[in-house]
Simulated assay, not measured.
Amino acid sequence: MSVSQAVSRSPTRRWVLLGAAAVAGTWAVREYRLTPPDYAGGKLSVSNAHRSAVAGEVVLIDIRTPREWRASGIGEGAHPIDMRRADFVQALTAVVGPDRSQPIALICARGVRSARLSLHLTEAGFTNIIDVPEGMLGSRAGPGWVRVGLPLHDYEGDAG
């Protein structure tokens, strides 16, 4: 047996290759989870989303979870509705009313879930869904609501 054959059959090399494959797989899954889908609809920066929500020009919906709302707070002017709710569309309609052309902006932590839900709601017949791709915590689109220093209020309650 040659030296190269002995090295290629060594358990250490096999573990290194398996480890590298695991790291590459983990990176691919992470990138998929952190990369928002392309959403061709409207987009707002967090500053413009805040201004528009407070002025009543758009209904801003924070689609994160109650745990996330408790951790960072809810942006001023935003309505918290957990996107995981089975009755999400009904809860959204209770806040915005039956007009599916009303401007609705969606914000999540980093813009991934809001982009995905924007696509879903557009397919469900909502015609004026606006994504806030920076999210509450920042993303490639910008620093996010918290880092910009926009007003927050504490989450109190179990609704959502």
Rank of each mutant, 00 (worst) to 15 (best):
A141S: 13
S10N: 10
A78W: 01
T65K: 11
H50G: 00
R9Q: 03
G157D: 12
A28E: 03
H120V: 12
G125I: 08
C108D: 06
G19Y: 03
V54M: 02
V132R: 01
L137H: 12
H50K: 12
S118M: 03
Y32T: 15
A78K: 04
A141T: 08
I130V: 15
A141K: 01
Q5V: 14
I104L: 05
L150A: 08
S10Y: 05
D158P: 15
G149M: 02
I129S: 02
G75T: 00
S101E: 13
V29S: 12
R51D: 01
V23Q: 05
G19D: 01
Q90H: 08
D158I: 15
A6I: 13
T65Q: 10
P37S: 04
S114P: 15
G144W: 02
Y155P: 03
Y32K: 14
T65R: 13
W15E: 09
E123G: 12
Q102W: 10
P103G: 12
T26C: 12
I107N: 00
D131W: 11
T35Y: 04
S47D: 06
S139A: 15
R67H: 05
N128K: 13
A6V: 13
H120Y: 11
A20M: 10
G42H: 09
A49T: 02
G75A: 07
Y155G: 02
R67F: 07
I81Q: 05
P151S: 03
T122D: 10
P80H: 03
R84A: 11
P98C: 00
D87Q: 10
V16K: 03
L152R: 00
W69T: 13
T65Y: 03
I104D: 00
P37Y: 02
E123F: 09
W15M: 09
F126C: 04
V59P: 01
V3W: 08
V46P: 02
D38Y: 08
Y39W: 09
A94K: 15
G25E: 00
